[in-house]
Design a protein around this nucleic acid. Structure first.
Lengths: 160, 160
DNA sequence: ATTTACAGGACCGGTTCGGTCCCTTATCGT
DNA sequence: ACGATAAGGGACCGAACCGGTCCTGTAAAT
């Protein structure tokens, strides 16, 4: 269902939390406690995020993690990519010869565009948008960002 | 990686094939042969697509499948939804109380918007766009559809 | 020197997904 | 009317992926 993993979800929660917390380094343990997420998972995620350059880490006592850049400069695709690899809806978007019928396939180019479209839509959203959660619905207005939201078929979820 | 399943990919290939083939009902077996895809999978997919109303089916000898609507009236999200359920990047976009910390969570609303953004981007692409594969890059110009494609960080795929 | 806390990797268990097969039902052709 | 054809629906298995946990090493602060 175009799912992204739960860990990725968690990871973004962590990022948002970091964005909302103070400057000083925050220990993984504290973050886990504050976000109510399991510590091992949190630890793992923070490591990944740090390795990908989205977080800066300080080791030793009083160490911890902090955003490597201001929240305004971190986009959603960056976070997703850091957490679960490059954004690619289909395999053939990544590996050139992955598909056995690459020559026959009439769908590759379209898929690449679709992929781009998704990536682009996500690129418009920054961490700061997610973190600024002052009022209800304050966040970011996608419409105001150029993504037209009119006439979206708000797919009536099957009452399953 | 915001992946959608391989079967979904196949399913869309089938739809494109059907869009390109003639009017008459096409048997699953023929379709499988022409698309070079494994018959059982093809059969399964066609069934799903028919059940979801994207394909019309005729039983019995000389039966087969055909598009239920003209290709211009079928969108990508429709196909994806038919093939692998409602588009939802995170669980909490679907089930209201799925997340244990729903009240604490500061990210739900943003996620819903993100979800919408993706869905919207996909909605702009119709089956006909995928099928019209006459010239290279002829397809649909996303830019001309309102999706700004400038400045997309064309994520340099890791040379893996 | 000791304690704290990140770094990195190995390691399982469960769930989901890809893929195949079976039997039933309906339609066409002889 | 009968047989062949082809979809409808579901059961089933194996494999890959993912979520989750733990352990050992290394760096920094007190």
């Amino acid at each position: 269902m175009i799912r992204l993993g739960r860990l990725t979800d968690y990871g973004i929660v962590l990022m948002v939390h970091l964005a909302g917390a103070g400057e000083g380094p925050h220990a993984a343990r504290d973050i886990a406690a504050e976000t109510q997420l399991p510590l091992p998972a949190v630890s793992k995620l923070l490591k990944s995020l740090a390795r990908q350059g989205l977080l800066a880490s300080s080791r030793g006592a009083k160490g911890g993690y902090r955003l490597a850049r201001p929240a305004e400069q971190i986009t959603v695709p960056e976070m997703i990519t850091a957490l679960e690899g490059p954004i690619a809806l289909t395999d053939c978007n990544l590996h050139e010869g992955a598909c056995s019928q690459e020559p026959r396939c009439h769908v590759r180019t379209p898929w690449q565009r679709i992929n781009r479209a998704v990536h682009d839509a996500l690129s418009r959203i920054r961490l700061a948008d997610l973190a600024s959660q002052n009022g209800p619905g304050t966040i970011v207005s996608l419409a105001s960002l150029g993504v037209d939201t009119t006439g979206i078929d708000t797919r009536p979820r099957p009452s399953t």
